[in-house]
Design a protein around this nucleic acid. Structure first.
Lengths: 245, 245, 245, 245
DNA sequence: GATGAATGAGATTTCATTCAT
DNA sequence: AATGAATGAAATCTCATTCAT
């Protein structure tokens, strides 16, 4: 049972009994993935999906209840892939930082490998609160971010990750830049060095996640105290001089 | 002259000479803002926009050349508002961190005040590279991110912001989380304490932007300050002694 | 009273009392002539007509009951001009051939001077049996072709023009080529030497109109008789030879 | 391959594979022919075309990319019919006059058989240089007039057709009256005796095309024929005499 | 006398979806 | 299992025309 199915997304019209049938479903899902990615939900047409497979539109509709359902399956499957890959490869025994790095790197890699187009679909369609589609996706979103949340929580407990900021915000701190980087790359048609970018991102993000250096902040506070003392001393000296004149 | 006009977007079919006419334009822009936000570009209909104002569709088309242009104006105006507000209020004489904080806080505030729906529109439509709309928006995007880029570059030169990471990535580090936070708030229908969130975000982001070895440089500066204070203290002591002699 | 008025075309909404008013009417008719010519009836818009004059559409409608009426006036006025020019200049005392030549030359000249565009309008719109407009134009057509018909009839009586063909057909023989030449010039964007073309056309047309040379046709018939006799002689010779063999 | 296809006109959205499909295409083309003829391009509506067939508008659009293309096909097919009929029946071995007569007669007949309405469409729409439609028709026009041009050129070389006038003008001399006659018949709703009219037209036109000095050359040829006959008679007489000797 | 503003009535076109075969 | 054929429903956009000011 896939994640999509667990999330309660409606699936198909016919029971995909035969092996041939399952093959067809796969083909349609792939074509759907391509077309939805390239055009976005609204501008994608069932006609084009069928045409790419050289089959008739009617056939598509005999495997999926409709355009919306097909799109839901496409997005659901994409989530499944990522979630499975992350869950499978996550070094649960590694350090918090190692696990964090793995998640970020893996995400970036999977998103790019799948083509940023698909990512764009998920982002802009999955997020648009418009259609009913989004309801079913909320659960997927949860599962999708679950590994990161777990690691962050673990880090907060162990003191490796700052706890003075809500987890929800930290999650935005991690996913936000990743998505933004991908948008950027997609929109400007820029090829990015996936691993180098991942390393930089991990580095910068980690700096944001770790607790502010206590020693450093204490030092800063002390430094300010000294500066203040120095200023007061100068003022006092000046005042005394005036009085003596 | 608005940013939209500068960007060369076609504007209206009818000359908005009269005061009444200008009022209508405003009304339609407002209704358009609402509908486009709520539904997204494709699912928004000119019929609904007209209906909300209690006017006929034809009237909408007599003020705007078409749906696309209306949407462009809606988005363009939104950009204008934000760009103008940032440019006007930016404390150019303040420290890098002050300017940075202003930009982040202002962005969040404006995005939320305008309704995250609109923000969603700009994000998902302005970014979908499908339609021609996006062409006209590239310049707006540039102007929109210009203040932040300026401040970041300034900070890199002064050593306050890490220079070992491309500006482009740092930009994603800043805008990404902001947008993600807003998505989050919108999708989960959660009210967020705007100023508290801004403060937290600024704090966390700044940690990411700061050069990793800032602790050392801070210590060095502190030593110099102490040495200076010590020198002034000695001078003062010497001076007083002379006077007493 | 113009020809158009005589033909019963509806004219204007308001009484054009003042001199200023009459000036307006003229301006609108001129702009209408331009736009209808350039675009054809259906593709012409009242908006463009008004715009070219820098006035509002509403003003056009306060001088003319509607688009159809305006177009009818434009076409009617064009007919008036041509009819008047022909009737005024026709050398009624000249020979049939002189009058014929005058009519053809004048027509070509007026059509081209007015721009073939206008001619195209009259031809394709005036002729389209579609709209009610055409009804009113039938009478104009009659008056328009009247001078030629008169001359042709006169020629038939005097024996200068062949009478073995209906007048109606001869009329088509004259107007058909003229219009075709103009279409041709317009469509291929070819400048034509108006007077040279007129001379050639008159020459060729006259050859078609004059009675078939009786002497010549008698000659031809005689020639055929001789040829036939010759053939029969050859056959007879051949037959005789075979018999003798 | 039809002329329309050769001209590169886009054809249909759906592949007309099945027999039923081809039937539908024919039906729509026929209905289109009717409606476009009756109303002209602009006033014809896809709604009416569909309605006459008792099908939905959407069906029309699933066989033709749009109104423009449908009209192009209608006109293109009409040209095809005429061109094919002329090319197929043209007596290439006949005299110039025979070929000329065939072309004129055939044209008139086909134009009338197809209904002068259609002819009106082609004339007024195909010629209106407004829309893009006309571009595709230029080539058809060329092919359409090609046979006549060939015959005229041939006649000019053999001296049977006057060469002191440009071919282009002679072409107008031929097509102009034909079209005018048809207009006339259509507008006045007059039934015309097609063959009688054709004969008259051919007769009159031929008089216009013949070199003005044909009487002289006919006479010369007659003299030569007589001389030849005389010579053969002498020979025959001589031969008989020899035999009798 | 002129017009700013508004609109009713279409026209073309698109597309997801159904159903008999 | 597949599809050819058809379509309902809607969306964008155009334009002649009206009318209060």
């Amino acid at each position: 049972m896939t994640v999509a199915e667990k999330a309660g997304l409606p699936v198909s019209r016919r029971k995909p009994a035969g092996r041939k049938s399952q093959q067809r479903v796969k083909e349609i899902l792939q074509a759907g993935r391509d077309v939805f990615s390239e055009r976005g939900y609204e501008r994608a047409t069932t006609a084009e999906i069928a045409q790419r497979l050289g089959i008739s539109e009617a056939t598509v509709f005999s495997y999926f209840r409709g355009k919306r359902e097909l799109c839901a399956r496409v997005i659901g499957d994409w989530y499944d892939e990522i979630i499975d890959a992350i869950e499978a490869g996550l070094p649960r025994d590694g350090s918090v930082r190692q696990q964090f790095a793995f998640i970020v790197r893996m995400h970036l890699r999977l998103m790019l490998v799948n083509g940023t187009d698909l990512c764009a679909l998920v982002l802009s369609e999955g997020r648009a609160r418009h259609h009913e589609l989004s309801e079913a996706l909320t659960e997927l979103q949860r599962r999708y971010t679950a590994p990161l949340m777990r690691v962050l929580a673990q880090g907060q407990q162990s003191g490796e990750i700052r706890a003075d900021v809500p987890l929800r915000l930290l999650r935005s701190m991690v996913f936000g830049p990743m998505e933004h980087v991908l948008w950027d790359a997609t929109l400007t048609n820029r090829q990015i060095d996936i691993d180098a970018t991942a390393d930089q991102l991990i580095d910068v993000l980690w700096a944001a996640l770790t607790p502010p250096d206590l020693a450093l902040s204490a030092l800063q506070r002390f430094r300010m105290d000294v500066a203040e003392a120095s200023r007061r001393f100068d003022e006092a000296s000046a005042a005394r001089r005036e009085k003596n004149d």
